[in-house]
Structure formats: C-alpha cells, structure tokens
Design a binder for these strands. Sequence first.
RNA 1: GGCCAGGUGGCAGAGUGGUCAUGCAGCGGCCUGCAAAGCCGCGUACGCCGGUUCGAUUCCGACCUUGGCCUCCA
Length: 456
Amino acid sequence: MPISLYNSLSRRTEPFTPLDPHRVTVYLCGPTVYNYVHIGNARGPAVFDVLVRLLRRHYPQVVYARNITDVDDKINAAAQAQGVAIDTITEKFAQAYREDMAGLGIAVPDIEPHATAHIAPIVAMIETLIASGHAYAAEGHVLFDVDSYPAYGALSGRDTEELIAGARVEVAPYKKNPADFVLWKPSSPELPGWHSPWGIGRPGWHIECSAMSAAHLGETIDIHAGGIDLLFPHHENEIAQSTCAHGGKVFARWWMHNGMLTFDGRKMSKSLGNVLLVHELLQQHPPEALRLRLLSGHYRQPLDWSDGAIAQAVNTLDGWYRVLRDLAGIELPAGTLPVPDRVEAALCDDLNTPQALAELSQLADQARLEGNARTKAALLGGGALLGLLQQEPEAWFRRGENGVDAAHVEDLLLQRRSARAARDFARADAIRDELTALGIVIEDGAQGTRWSVLKR
RNA sequence: GGCCAGGUGGCAGAGUGGUCAUGCAGCGGCCUGCAAAGCCGCGUACGCCGGUUCGAUUCCGACCUUGGCCUCCA
C-alpha cells in the first residue's frame, strides 16, 4: 500500500518514495534539555513515532534519529540559576525526557545524537561554509551569509527583504545582512566552550541539527520532521547550511510539520506559562489516554488540550479494553499480528490517525459482535500500529489500584454472591455501595462479577 | 504590517460536489432483582454573504473570526 505524505516544501501531499528503499532516513528535532517537557513538546514525537512504525512495515530498514540539544544558552542559564554544573542539568533532563517519552509509549529512536558529541563535525561544516563563501567570521562569531544562498526562504515562503522589514530583533552590527544567522559564537570562560579556528566558543542552534543529521543519516535524508513553529527560522536555516555545505545537494526530501497543541485556545508554551508537564500528566492520568489524545487529531491540525478531552480518551479506551477483556480467553496464533487494511490505509493517507482510530472503533465493534480470534487479532494489530491497546485488559481496568486490597474486594464479592443467591438484594446492594465507596465498579456478567478500579 | 493555517452537530474530530464519518456524552426501548455492560433506535452539523453548478459543508470571491510564524519554542 503506497504511502502519501504532505511535504511542507511543495505544500502538497505526494506519494512517498525513499531515495534508497533499503535505508529510509528520518530526523526529528528533539528537545533542548534544560527542563521537563510539556505535553505540546510530545506531540511531534508521538505522531512521528506512528510514522516510523508505519515506515518500518514498508521498508526493511528505517533509521530514525531524534537529537538531544545539550548546549544552549537556556541550559547555561538554568545551570547558573541552580548553581550546578551544565552536565547535571542536561543529564537529568535528557533522562527525564526518555522516561516521559517511554511513558507515552513512544519507541526509542535508533539514534539519539547529542550536540556536544558532534563539535568536530560542526566545526568542520562551518569551515566548509566559510571556504565556499557561504559564511564569514566577525568579532568571534561566524555567521551564515544569507545573500550567498538565493533559495533562502523557499521553505517558509518569505524573502529576505520582508524579513528585515518585519524583524523585531536588534540587528547585531557585525552582520552583513540582518537575516544572517549565527553558526558559532564566542564563549566567555564561565560558559561551555570548545577550541575552534575562531577562538573558544560554542555552536549556534541551527548548525547542530545539520551536522548531526549528516553525521548519522547522510547528506540527503528522506524525511525531516518537527513542529510547525520550527519551520522558520530553524528549518529554513538548516536547509541553507546543509545545502551549501554539501555542494547543493538536497538536504531533506520531505519536510513534515506537526501543528501546535493549544491549551485554553493558545499555543502551549513555556513563555506563555500555560504548560502541563508530561512528567506530571503521567502521574495524573492513564498514560495511554494521553497518547490516544495526542493521536486523535490530524497531525497538521491544531489540537486543543483539556481535561474533558482526556476523559473522552479514557472512556474510549474503557470500551476497547472491555471488548478485549471479554475475549481474554481466545488464543491467538503466535507471531506478529495482522494489521487491518483499513487502518493501514488511513495511516498511508498522510498519517490520518483520526481516521485510523475510527477504523479501530469499527474493529472493536466487530470483535465484540463476532468474538473470534480473527477479529480480536485485527483489533490488537490495528492498535499495535498506533501504539495502543498493548497492555493486558485487567491491567487497564485495575490501574492505579493503590490502596485497594484485592483480597478484600474478592471477599466482599463472595458475600454479595451469597446474598444474591439468597435473593437478599438489600444486602447485595449494600455490599455494592461499600465497594463503590472503595472506588470499585462492578459488573454482573454471565461468567460472574467483574470489578474495576474507578478511573483515576 | 508580511507570510501561513483553521472556523463541522452538546464535546472531540475526519471527510466529501449529489447515499453513512467515527467516537464520547445525552435521550427512548430491550435485557437485568436493581445497576453496569451489551443490544436496538434517536438527534435535518458543516462561520457569514454572494458566485459557479441541475445540485456546495465540499469549488471561486468578499467579509467576520480564531490561531501560528516573522524572537527562544515541538
């Protein structure tokens, strides 16, 4: 089944064809590790996780890189504010990031390059740019010469004239063109710095991604992804640097951008202060419901975050897991689960996860109705491609049963069973009330009474 | 000011020139000792105004409106 993906560069959906079908390359701009990430930061990793899962079904090898930016002025500021070493900050939050992503069911990327481990290739790339007339050194800085690259602005659809007119930044006096951006900047002794032909300094943000991408994936990659807010200037600058450093070779063949996650109708961002940390949300809600919510809108659309939306996701998962719980006794043949065509077709159509989820609902209906191995496998297989429905149904229904004494619950249920058998319904209902007070929901079924922990 | 996306039923959220999205919630019925779950049924949604068309939520234009980028940002 062919995959079509929207390409921000051409502004249209195009059939996806990798440069080398034996090695598909994907790069996602990762976090700058100076704090816990918020749920908006997780949207890209979540949707492109599904993309990578899809690609792996189609191609024998997919190399997926998601970087860690561990040199940055915000990191320096955080370290200084807390009076600790830079490494303390970056290691702590890089690890927190990995845990948060794992909590959301996001698979570990093949490569997780760190910027500080790539200073040599960064310096080499800058030297190449200077040698070829695309960059210049000035007052300890090295700047990219935007005028040397006529195609600058092609991705974001703006020209340098407008940029200057609309610029809200003070223009450094050493810049030839106000739109020129920093490749290398000088470091004072208290800041992290590396020796370079331009003195002790550190790399600018944009060049890191260009260098790491080339180091691990090659000069031309298939897909470069990130949030729409990175389209300009970050991705525009990456294109300029990489293309000029690589003799005009195409840098990324597909550019994919996820829409922003909003909260109270505004983009969730640290500067606005309207953030919800993944770290905390994972404690407050079933992680799978967070993932479902992140996938419930098309990746290019804005997605609003709210408690109500999480509650809906929890209810939806309740329904799906209920079906799987009813089918717990049905054995599936060993081996990988089949992926239903309709789910795959939805994802092949520019990663239409809402459509895929609609299909999953249909599959759940079928499984509930037919209750056989085929329909159960289809539901689980479709879920697997989306990274959903992979836990035991009982685990879902008894999540967070902290404080719940399972033996006590079973004992009460036994008593209630006796009461019902004796048609003492008042007693039976009293026991049910007692269980409700404990946060236990029960259901009488053909095979006996089931219990679940009330959703937290 | 420039560039770019949106505005779909109570909520979430796809999609399409003319038959159905889907889910959550709600309502009615069946079932159940009662619940819950399940099953059956229900709701004349496509910002506004024009235009094209036999027919537009879907195409075109204007307008209103929300948001993103132009500065760090997923």
